[in-house]
Design a protein around this nucleic acid. Structure first.
Length: 282
DNA sequence: CATTTATCCTGTAAGC
DNA sequence: TGCTTACAGGATAAAT
């Protein structure tokens, strides 16, 4: 499931080939894959053809490629299972390709940029830019790897809210890029129970938690992201290795790597939470 | 204003 | 073997 590290791996993979390329043709095979493009699939196809693509950018889990003059961008959210794949013209067909763009690149010849998405929670769109960010990502907070991320504002939000700390971690308006996997991992690392109310997390633990999010992100990034199956892959269709480094997520019943107590799996906010009942007291 | 709920999807795996 | 059901869960609109 693509969270910040996975989306960043995709962005890095696109950067080389896509910057200064031109879209020469477009095919939307399933209009649901452009549901973020409010004017519809036909409009997307018509307007994306001919545009020049610049350097890919990211905020949280939103990825975009500014176009031409920079007033607009090709926006992508990968949702649960979205993939952006760079393929040569002769390369075999990948499964679940919903949108295909043909690119004329500066240094890599002609390439296909395929948006594949099994579950269709992801979407592409052509969006207008506002203050350097596509409008659809304007409400998203900076992510903790962004040099301009405001630590104090995030810590203040934690301090003043009664909602569960995990819920706050997943709130993209407060801190972006964190999804279920990295939330569980960061909470485990910082020894914070996921259901602790934000205002009851001590100042020291709150700072430790923010550092844990950063450290988990950086480690995952170095390992090419997390994938359990073929749902998350880089632009070449390859899986990352971070799944081997997970301490809590998906390890219900297995011993905590720190203390040996079985990791507990509970249902929380309609998703699963994994934590060590001994290391992470409420 | 904050918080909760429903909706969108399909492949995989478990249960009968 | 074949059918049904539960599950994975990010973003967002609507409801409370």
């Amino acid at each position: 499931m693509p969270e910040l590290p996975e989306v960043e791996v995709v962005r890095l993979g696109l950067a080389q080939a896509v910057a200064s390329s031109r879209v020469v043709a477009a095919e939307v095979r399933d209009p649901r894959a452009v549901k973020r493009h409010v004017a519809g699939a036909a409009d997307f196809e018509a307007r994306i053809v001919g545009v020049e693509l610049l350097e890919p950018a990211r905020r949280g889990k939103f990825l975009w490629i500014p176009t031409g003059g920079g007033a607009e961008a090709l926006l992508a959210h990968l949702g649960m299972s979205g993939q952006l794949l760079l393929r040569t013209h002769e390369a075999p067909e990948d499964r679940h390709v919903r949108v295909r763009l043909w690119l004329e690149t500066a240094h890599h010849g002609e390439l296909r940029l395929d948006f594949a998405d099994q579950r269709l929670f992801g979407s592409l769109a052509l969006d207008s830019m506002s203050d350097g960010v596509p409008r659809q990502a304007a409400h998203i907070a900076r992510d903790p790897l962004d040099p301009l991320f405001d630590d104090e504002a995030f810590l203040r939000a934690l301090r003043t809210r009664s909602a569960a700390v995990k819920k706050l971690l997943l709130d993209q308006n407060l801190i972006s890029g964190v999804g279920n996997i990295y939330a569980d991992e960061a909470l485990w690392l910082a020894r914070v129970h996921p259901e602790t109310p934000g205002c009851e997390v001590s100042a020291i633990k709150a700072r430790r938690l923010l550092e844990a999010v950063r450290s988990v992100f950086l480690k995952a990034l170095a390992e090419g992201g997390t994938s359990f199956d073929r749902l998350y892959v880089n632009v070449n269709g390859e899986s990352g290795y971070f799944a081997h480094s997970l301490n809590a997520y998906g390890r219900g019943g297995e011993p905590c790597p720190r203390c040996g107590t079985p990791i507990r799996r509970i249902s929380f906010m309609n998703r699963s939470s994994h934590f060590c009942p001994r290391c992470q007291r409420r």
